[in-house]
Design a binder for these strands. Structure first.
Length: 344
DNA sequence: AAAGCGGGGAG
DNA sequence: CTCCCAGCTTT
């Protein structure tokens, strides 16, 4: 009724201009000064967005990945000619290592096919390796100042709460709906600031779990009733236990026996040589660890190999200890090798 | 639509 | 343990 003060105004979509202003002015006041927010050059924006896919800001920033990568590969051309090993070494510790190769392949496509001119239209961006809907929108807004429908984990959480919407954000209808809402909300005058502000809001105010609604600059346009219950997601697959068996072989002259991965997983990274359980049955256990990886829980068992009888398999290679530092190893194997080397 | 990618950090 | 993260690709 009219005597009741509404707890929110019109929806954010209906009041888009006021919503944008409130959000943008808040961001100007409190927004963090990340290095990729200081530039609109396509290349560094691309590097940052690829690194930030499914990876937290603190990880990319805290361990210096972004700065180090740009020092090593300062432009499209230098990245385009990067070899696998130096590329993966620069990515070591970031995870999802396919991203590094896709980033370089995109650099190659731009340096080659597009004559070095960075494309700014959606369909061309989407055709490049590693660039999907999110990254294409990010590049258009941050590097070309074009309005775009940018939806990441932060934005979808904000939108679900703003609209008090229970459609699972990872379902096809949810994704479609959120893209449309993001497009409507985007500030056509300052798309880069707008998207930066949305992500800042998602990180620090409209955070997962219990949000800081008391400090939210756009709460007048938020319909959420129980924000901690949103967003909804589809149930996820449960963890599967798997085992990995490897051998530890250290030769005083030749070094450590390692194996370079050449399949679809961790392609190009080095690990301890894997063996079948039967091959390890009579060997002494040297090291064991359990680590989670995507939807698996892996128990890694490393055995003392037998130098005289152990078969050297295809791809196995003796690596001298000083070369070890130059090779990219996935984290669990880096840890295992360091432990075993120290105790040998 | 679902799974794979086989990550990593924070709580 | 759990959940989340500036997602993309393949089946």
């Amino acid at each position: 009724m009219s005597f009741l003060k509404p707890r929110f105004e019109r929806s954010a979509l209906d009041a888009a201009p006021k919503f944008r202003n409130a959000l943008g002015e808040w961001f100007d006041r409190v927004g963090k000064d990340f290095p990729w927010r200081r530039t609109s050059e396509p290349y560094p924006v691309l590097v940052s967005e690829m690194m930030l896919q499914q990876t937290q800001v603190a990880t990319v920033l805290g361990k210096g990945f972004y700065t180090r990568f740009l020092e090593k590969f300062p432009d499209i051309e230098s990245l385009a000619i990067a070899d696998d090993q130096s590329l993966l070494k620069a990515w070591e510790g970031l995870g999802y290592y396919r991203r590094a190769r896709m980033l370089r392949d995109t650099a190659r496509a731009i340096a080659g096919k597009h004559g070095g001119t960075f494309p700014g239209d959606e369909s061309t961006l989407l055709s490049l390796p590693g660039i999907g809907p999110y990254t294409a929108s990010a590049l258009r807004a941050f590097a070309f100042n074009q309005p775009s429908a940018l939806v990441d984990g932060n934005v979808s959480r904000i939108l679900a709460r703003l609209m008090d919407d229970e459609t699972p954000i990872d379902s096809t209808p949810g994704i479609r709906k959120h893209r449309e809402w993001a497009r409507t909300l985007c500030d056509p005058e300052r798309p880069a600031r707008h998207h930066h502000a949305m992500m800042e809001l998602g990180q620090n105010i409209c955070r997962p779990g219990v949000p800081h609604c008391e400090a939210c600059p756009v709460s007048p346009w938020c319909k959420t009733v129980v924000p901690e219950n949103l967003p909804l997601k589809k149930p996820r697959a449960k963890l599967t236990d798997i085992s990995e068996y490897a051998v530890w072989l250290l030769d005083e002259e030749r070094g450590i026996l390692l194996h370079q991965e050449n399949g679809s997983r961790r392609n190009g990274l080095w690990k301890l040589p894997l063996r079948s359980p039967a091959e390890c049955a009579s060997l002494e256990l040297a090291y064991q660890s359990t680590y989670p990886i995507t939807r698996y829980r892996v128990t890694l068992r490393v055995y003392h190999g037998n130098r005289s009888t152990d078969q050297i398999h295809e791809g196995d290679e003796w690596i001298s200890p000083h070369r070890l530092a130059e090779l990219p190893l996935a984290a669990p194997f880096r840890k295992a090798v360091e432990h075993l080397f120290l105790n040998s």
